[in-house]
Simulated scan of single mutants.
Amino acid sequence: MFNGNELNYQSVEITNDSFWPDINLADFQKQRKIPIDLDSELLTDALLASIAEINLSLESLKNKYSANGYIAASEVPGAKANGQNALCAQYKKALYARAKADLIGEFNSVSSRAPNPKQENPETQRSLLAEAAFVIRNMKGLKRVTVASI
């Protein structure tokens, strides 16, 4: 509930590889409504683990863009808003969904507040992981679902 006090997000810069954008912990907290009382090291570790997973998933896409002369995701043409292109926005969306899914179990165990059933249930975690997977598939130019014959 809003009490008039300003929220103090934890600004920690996370340096990514040279292609994908750097990440700030405060942006993750704001965009994904992460409780501000969670330890910054815990949150940073979750983001680092998710960066490693997402970057590995997107290695072929990175190589494709690099082969076409783009040295950073921010240079790839596409829709832009507030100084960010669609590719970087999609990257952050997938990253933040994956990291939040990894943290769901921590929300109740680390925080001393009342549980939030909507945010902390297994269905929410599955939904966040599906969101990340859908975004990654879209970035790769794949449809949400594909069928292959065996």
Score class of each variant (00 low, 15 high):
Asn5Met: 14
Asn8Gln: 14
Tyr9Met: 03
Gln10Cys: 02
Gln10Glu: 06
Ser11Met: 11
Thr15Leu: 11
Thr15Pro: 01
Asn16Met: 03
Asp17Ser: 11
Asp17His: 06
Phe19Lys: 00
Phe19Val: 01
Trp20Lys: 03
Asp22Leu: 01
Asp22Met: 01
Ile23Met: 04
Ile23Phe: 04
Ile23Cys: 04
Ile23Gln: 04
Asn24Cys: 03
Asn24Val: 05
Leu25His: 02
Ala26Leu: 02
Phe28Met: 02
Phe28Cys: 02
Phe28Leu: 03
Phe28Asp: 01
Gln29Cys: 04
Gln31Ser: 10
Gln31Phe: 07
Arg32Ala: 04
Arg32His: 05
Ile34Cys: 00
Ile34Pro: 00
Ile34Met: 02
Pro35Thr: 00
Pro35Glu: 00
Ile36Thr: 13
Ile36Leu: 05
Ile36Ser: 05
Asp37Cys: 10
Leu38Lys: 00
Leu38Cys: 01
Asp39Thr: 01
Ser40Glu: 14
Leu42Glu: 04
Leu42Asn: 01
Leu43Trp: 00
Thr44Val: 06
Asp45Ile: 04
Asp45His: 04
Ala46Glu: 04
Ala49Val: 10
Ala49Cys: 06
Ser50Glu: 07
Ser50Lys: 04
Ile51Arg: 04
Glu53Cys: 06
Ile54Ala: 05
Asn55Gly: 03
Leu56Trp: 02
Leu58Asn: 03
Leu58Gly: 02
Glu59Arg: 14
Lys62Pro: 06
Lys62Asn: 07
Asn63Pro: 03
Lys64Val: 13
Ser66Ala: 14
Ala67Phe: 12
Ala67Asn: 15
Gly69Phe: 13
Tyr70Val: 09
Ile71Pro: 00
Ile71Ser: 13
Ile71Cys: 08
Ile71Arg: 13
Ile71Tyr: 09
Ala73Met: 15
Ser74Pro: 06
Ser74Cys: 07
Ser74Val: 05
Glu75Asp: 14
Pro77Lys: 12
Pro77Glu: 15
Gly78Leu: 10
Gly78Glu: 10
Lys80His: 12
Ala81Arg: 14
Ala81Val: 12
Asn82Ile: 04
Gln84Leu: 07
Gln84Thr: 12
Asn85Val: 05
Ala86Met: 14
Ala86Val: 15
Ala86His: 10
Leu87Cys: 07
Leu87Met: 15
Cys88Ala: 11
Cys88Pro: 00
Ala89Ile: 07
Gln90Ser: 12
Tyr91Ile: 00
Lys92Asp: 02
Ala94Val: 05
Tyr96Gly: 08
Ala97Val: 05
Ala99Phe: 08
Ala99Met: 06
Lys100Cys: 06
Asp102Val: 09
Asp102Cys: 09
Ile104Thr: 10
Ile104Met: 11
Gly105Leu: 09
Phe107Ser: 01
Phe107Val: 01
Asn108Glu: 13
Ser109Gln: 14
Val110Glu: 15
Ser111Asn: 15
Ser111Trp: 07
Ser111Phe: 07
Ser111Leu: 14
Ser112Glu: 15
Arg113Ile: 10
Arg113Lys: 13
Arg113Leu: 14
Ala114His: 07
Ala114Met: 10
Pro115Lys: 13
Asn116Phe: 08
Lys118Thr: 11
Lys118Asp: 12
Gln119Cys: 00
Glu120Val: 06
Asn121Val: 05
Pro122Gln: 08
Pro122Gly: 04
Pro122Arg: 06
Glu123Met: 09
Glu123Gly: 09
Gln125Pro: 02
Gln125Gly: 11
Arg126Tyr: 09
Arg126Met: 14
Ser127Tyr: 08
Leu129Met: 12
Ala130Lys: 14
Ala130Phe: 07
Glu131Asn: 11
Glu131His: 06
